[in-house]
């Protein structure tokens, strides 16, 4: 099996709190893997370990066959791993276009002196950056807003800016922390379509999400975390019918699993 990402026995604790406790799973190349689990299950912590924000205390993360855990974020970005954030992190004072242009940082090179003296290589690179970012804005449907400061956009548009910024450098793997949280049904629907379109271009996706309908729609594989442990892993269909998952989510309440999104979010 060809995996873009393998997480082996990952452990992380904050003081006495065990956020991740020996978690192992993998994300197949070119497909969409979802991590689900109740609030506080350790999903964001897992993403932070994979993207280099945290250094796990135990276990390791392999990206495309090479160790990733321990490497700083910007190095992992150069190795083709990008991400979005649960609490939006757009560059509020940069325009939409500039936000997406910054997304190409990892795959471009020119430095301080080249920029200050506008050396020929730098100017060619700047042109390429702008063109590629404009293409990306077209793809994600933000071309109209390219000159706006990103901080002034609606919540849904800011989420799209973040996604565009993560995608523009043609990464191998994108980690998405709750891509549709806070979006209305129409925006959620559209985001789902965008994610499937991205999947179609061969980029591997790993997403954390509470919205089960979206997870079922876009994922090829689902991993379930609960109190820092993995309790299940399988196809969306298998997960929907997994007894421990149903017990964890429903906790005695008589709701179908599609209602979990609202229940977990309240």
């Amino acid at each position: 099996m060809d995996d873009i990402l393998a997480v082996e026995n990952l452990s992380l604790s904050f003081g006495g709190l065990q956020a991740l406790d020996g978690v192992s799973f993998s994300a197949p190349r070119g497909l969409v893997t979802a991590i689900i689990g109740p609030n506080g299950a350790g999903k964001t912590s897992a993403i932070n370990c994979m993207s280099g924000v945290y250094r796990p205390q135990g276990g390791r993360v392999m990206l495309d066959g090479r160790q990733a855990s321990g490497a700083p974020q910007h190095v992992l970005a150069r190795r083709g791993l990008t991400r979005t954030f649960q609490n939006l992190q757009v560059f509020a004072n940069l325009s939409v276009l500039e936000n997406v242009m910054v997304g190409l940082h990892a795959v471009t090179k020119s430095g301080f002196l080249g920029a200050m003296f506008r050396l020929p290589g730098h100017r060619a690179e700047e042109r390429a950056i702008r063109e590629r970012a404009l293409e990306m804005l077209d793809f994600i449907g933000l071309a109209e807003l390219s000159g706006q400061p990103a901080g002034q956009l609606s919540y849904g548009d800011r989420k799209r800016v973040e996604l565009a910024r993560a995608l523009v450098g043609r990464p191998k793997l994108v980690l998405l922390d709750e891509p549709v949280a806070g979006l209305n049904p129409a925006e959620t629907e559209e985001m789902g379509s965008i994610l499937l379109k991205v999947r179609g271009t061969g980029v591997s996706l790993l997403l954390v999400e509470h919205d089960m309908a979206l997870v079922m729609r876009v994922s090829d594989k689902v991993v379930v975390l609960h109190f820092g442990r993995k309790i299940a892993e399988g196809t969306p269909h298998e997960i929907q019918n997994h007894p421990e998952v149903i017990a964890t989510y429903l906790g005695g309440r008589e709701e179908p699993i599609n209602g979990v999104a609202e229940a977990a979010h309240a």
Binding site: S51, R83, A106, R165
Partner: peptide, 15 residues
Amino acid sequence: RALHDSPLAAAAVGV
């Protein structure tokens, strides 16, 4: 300028 706005996100795109 990006790292001024969000150091975390700037690092995540390779700054």
